[in-house]
Design a binder for these strands. Sequence first.
DNA 1: TTGAAAGCGCTAACAA
DNA 2: TTGTTAGCGCTTTCAA
Lengths: 333, 333
Amino acid sequence: MTTIYDVAQAAGVSISTVSHVLNGTRFVSEATKARVLQAVEQLGYRPSSLARALVRQVTHTVGLIVPDNVNPFFAEVARGIEDCGLAAGYSVILCNSDRSLSKEEIYLDMLISKRVDGLVYMTVQTRGEMLQPLKDHNIHAVVFDREYEGFDALLLDNLGGGYDAARHLLSLGHRRIACITGPDGPTRSQDRVTGYQRALEEAGIVPDPELVVAGDWTFESGRRAARHLLHLDDPPTAIFACNDAMAVGVLSYLCSRGIRVPEELSVMGYDNIALSAYTCPPLTTMATPIREVGQCLCELLLGRIAGQLPPEPQRVVIRSELLVRGSTGPARA
Amino acid sequence: MTTIYDVAQAAGVSISTVSHVLNGTRFVSEATKARVLQAVEQLGYRPSSLARALVRQVTHTVGLIVPDNVNPFFAEVARGIEDCGLAAGYSVILCNSDRSLSKEEIYLDMLISKRVDGLVYMTVQTRGEMLQPLKDHNIHAVVFDREYEGFDALLLDNLGGGYDAARHLLSLGHRRIACITGPDGPTRSQDRVTGYQRALEEAGIVPDPELVVAGDWTFESGRRAARHLLHLDDPPTAIFACNDAMAVGVLSYLCSRGIRVPEELSVMGYDNIALSAYTCPPLTTMATPIREVGQCLCELLLGRIAGQLPPEPQRVVIRSELLVRGSTGPARA
DNA sequence: TTGAAAGCGCTAACAA
DNA sequence: TTGTTAGCGCTTTCAA
């Protein structure tokens, strides 16, 4: 392991000179600069970010806590964050919480110990106090789809999205519209359900609680929910899944039963993950600009870290818009 | 930011005592231990991994370079690695190379600077020399699906997999079997094509080069390839896509043209990503234990880091096995 | 135009 | 049973 001392010695200068040529932080004559650079090259020297971070108190590293990076939505967001981070010279530490409180705590501890400069927090934690230690170590955090006092947040317009989704189905003549939600709990995405209900009510339909069933965002849960819904005495003519993955599960179940979409049943999702353009039929969905969500999250965080943001916590809202593809159609007469 | 000094002061002991109670590295009387712990608690002290890493020369951090974490295959592998790493107290830095040489170099530099203890390298780089700097900084690396002199490797049995895939199609009576490959280049996954060709030849079929078309592992490329293949004068009766994502693209194209699977055309993929159980119809595929791939990669790396592996580079081979679902069927008479 | 030296927050001899 | 101190590899003031 070659250190700055080795380089200094090889170049016949002091370590401070080496440091300064490497960082361009004060004038160094061309001649010595050249010698230093050559020594660096020849020795294959790479400055230790560790040592640097210790003195500068910045690591150029951020943490990313997601429920599960396999979930296509989070995969795409993670990608957006990673890209944006790379461009700014940040690396990102990936953390999968599985929505488990204890895992979140472990990761939080780990990230604090590692002295990350900031953290994108995309998971479902009730108690905002859990983030307090971050403050104590002045680690900035931006929170996704949820609001914590004192933290920047990127919010989705779930209410509007759920509303628009239901309106679309309503406009096709559907009256019995089912909704597959996320797991119970204080998820803001429950707002999608609220939006859906509001649209129904406005259309003079009293929402049937039987038609609202909980999934857990996975393919499999969508599939199960579909099976359940279609065995109801009075089954729905349309299903709105609160994310695309569950909608794919619905499609999969319908396919296995030979039920034609959208002729016999309309299906729609939410998010517009890449996959949803390739299902059979292609999925009508509430399109969220997912990569931009990631980018925006990252920009918020980096802006905060750089001290370029106003002191008060920021609130950015991102809307989703209806994208009609082949999986929804007129209700059968 | 509270440091070990603050804790020592608050507890009325020296910093070495604090260090030792925190690390359990030498005997400390119950009384002082209690006082230290209390001070730690009260001050919300978290040791700096940075400082610790600087002296101990280990960061408990590993790098992961993948082409794209959105690709479901790599998403699942990443998950496997992350889980395994967490269990051992390691964090993982996520890097997306997009198979770009320059990005790989940037990441490699970054990871070396950050002094990761090791690195899982899952991307397509011709020149093994690029990994030389790792050696110089004695950073261990395990390489996926490729062999570099002096590095541990986890290999897939692509040859056998391609062979078995084609055999399956052959056994269903197909004679014109197309193959959608990855991008050109020295990918080991070209072996899947070789295996496929070998099976055809053994069945007395001379492989038609027109039937082998290159994709880039994405949904879209599968779709495009399918379109191309079906416009051939003598189109195939079966398509073997070298990964599931492309097979999904194929399915999507067929769906849009109203071509029934498997009645009119058989389709199979490779990998068995989670999604492939939920396509319409469910995808026949060469099932790879993807999570285990991730776990194995991680175990190899951590084993190497811990010095528990024999000095010579390890070679672990993982096989995929045929999983017949609904997307393949008898060739039409 | 450059060097010396203090210090970032820890660990781990070495002493007591 | 505990404390003192020398680093780990850097940045950055202060001096020259």
